[in-house]
């Protein structure tokens, strides 16, 4: 499975450096190493979800309880979470750092991922969620730190798109 271990490690280290102490996640191929890293890290609380929208609630609870958290999910999981984003994170001004694996872009070979690819950014824009792409390891640390800073200062959701060129080696 050519998911990049090295780049997953860069992402994970950047999350740790940003003070994230809870990660909620639902597995998907590109996230396997990130989830294993969280699993092996005794300092990280990993919450394995049944469905992604739960993670919005858990991150809200974490924020109210005084901790920084992030969510790991596929773009289809983001689409699944829209009501939680609107009527919890936005309504209650909850900082929410979402790392979204961006399936269905150029290079996608799985036919079932393609529709999600074409609507992810339009939905992010419709929800007025600031987002940036993570495409190469060199900018990962800074972009994660900046996204986390904006989420905390604006008390709103912020998204980072984990792109094919960063996550997949072929």
């Amino acid at each position: 499975m050519p998911v990049s271990v090295a780049n997953s490690q860069v992402i994970y280290d950047a999350l740790k450096a940003s003070g994230i102490s809870l990660l909620s996640a639902l597995p998907e191929t590109w996230l396997v190493h990130l989830i294993r890293m969280a699993e092996d890290d005794p300092e990280m609380i990993l919450v394995r979800l049944a469905k992604e929208e739960e993670g919005i609630g858990i991150s809200a609870g974490a924020h109210l309880a005084g901790a920084k958290s992030a969510m790991l999910m596929q773009n289809h999981g983001f689409l699944q979470s829209v009501n939680g984003i609107v009527s919890l994170a936005r309504l209650y001004r909850i900082p929410l750092l979402m790392l979204i694996s961006y399936r269905g872009e150029m290079g996608e070979r799985d036919p079932w991922q393609t529709e999600g690819g074409s609507v992810t950014e339009p939905v992010l824009r419709a929800l007025d969620i600031p987002y940036e792409r993570l495409e190469e390891p060199g900018h990962v640390r800074l972009r994660i730190r900046k996204a986390q800073a904006l989420a905390e200062s604006s008390l709103k959701p912020v998204a980072l798109l984990l792109c094919r060129d960063l996550m997949w080696e072929e």
């Binding site: 102490s21 809870l22 609380i45 919450v47 929208e53 739960e54 993670g55 919005i56 609630g57 858990i58 991150s59 809200a60 609870g61 974490a62 109210l64 309880a65 005084g66 901790a67 958290s69 009501n83 939680g84 009527s87 919890l88 309504l91 209650y92």
Partner: peptide, 19 residues
Amino acid sequence: LLHSMGLASSVGLGIALLR
């Protein structure tokens, strides 16, 4: 939690895990 039906239990879980 005056909206996002279903998520009260998830919010409670997040707080309980961290505190």
